[in-house]
């Protein structure tokens, strides 16, 4: 299957685990647009979690330039990195996605992945990014997906939709976790995916 065909087949209502797993296993640097220094905002604790799991995190928020988030200096915009970035994680409402994606498309080299946070979805912006070969994830949280695929999130009673008969290494602080468990297809949470699809079709 060509890359082009693969892109056309991407179903943004229900991602195969291998798609998400491939992204989280391959990206190293993540710029988080809309990162907040307020420690009860989801962007703050997603940023902190991903940093603890070894990702090279960059907070992007023009309102906080001059300050740091967990030791990383805030930058004003995507063009201010001065180095290539693997993934852009957008913590903005759906209505603010397009300008961020347009700015991302001016970067050289292009990012490999554009990820829109839980609750955020802009299909037109996604199509634009995919047309130049960027992988897109919408309406998902990378912290939740990392926790799910590693089964760390199972400690909260969440259905990880993965199985493993392997003995995992004893956990230490800040370690990377294996995401390569046997996936059970996402099919067993199809009801939730269907509900999300119905909602996106109505809106």
């Amino acid at each position: 299957m060509s890359d082009n065909k693969k892109r056309q087949a991407m179903n943004h209502d229900a991602y195969p685990d291998n798609y998400i797993r491939g992204i989280l296993n391959s990206v190293k640097s993540i710029a988080m647009v809309g990162a907040s220094p307020v420690n009860v905002r989801p962007s703050y604790f997603a940023f902190k979690y991903l940093a603890q799991r070894g990702y090279d995190m960059i907070p992007v928020n023009p309102g906080h330039v001059g300050k740091e988030l967990l030791g990383k200096p805030f930058v004003a915009s995507l063009s201010d990195f001065g180095r290539p970035i693997d993934m852009i994680d957008i913590f903005r409402n759906s209505s603010h996605i397009m300008p961020v994606v347009e700015e991302a498309l001016t970067l050289d080299p292009l990012p490999k992945v554009i990820w829109m946070q839980l609750g955020a979805r802009d299909d037109a912006a996604a199509a634009k990014a995919e047309s130049v070969g960027i992988k897109v994830v919408m309406n998902r949280c990378p912290k939740i997906e990392y926790g799910r695929l590693s089964s760390e999130i199972s400690w909260m009673g969440v259905n990880s939709r993965t199985l493993s008969s392997k003995r995992p290494p004893a956990p230490t602080q800040g370690m990377r976790l294996s995401l390569n468990r046997m996936s059970v297809g996402g099919g067993d949470t199809a009801a939730s995916d269907r509900a999300a699809k119905n909602k996106s079709e109505q809106s």
Partner: peptide, 16 residues
């Protein structure tokens, strides 16, 4: 938590 995830999986839910 093991019990919760198991029943969530058997029922086809997201969590329990």
């Amino acid at each position: 938590a093991v019990l919760e995830e198991r029943v969530a999986a058997l029922e086809g839910g997201t969590a329990a």
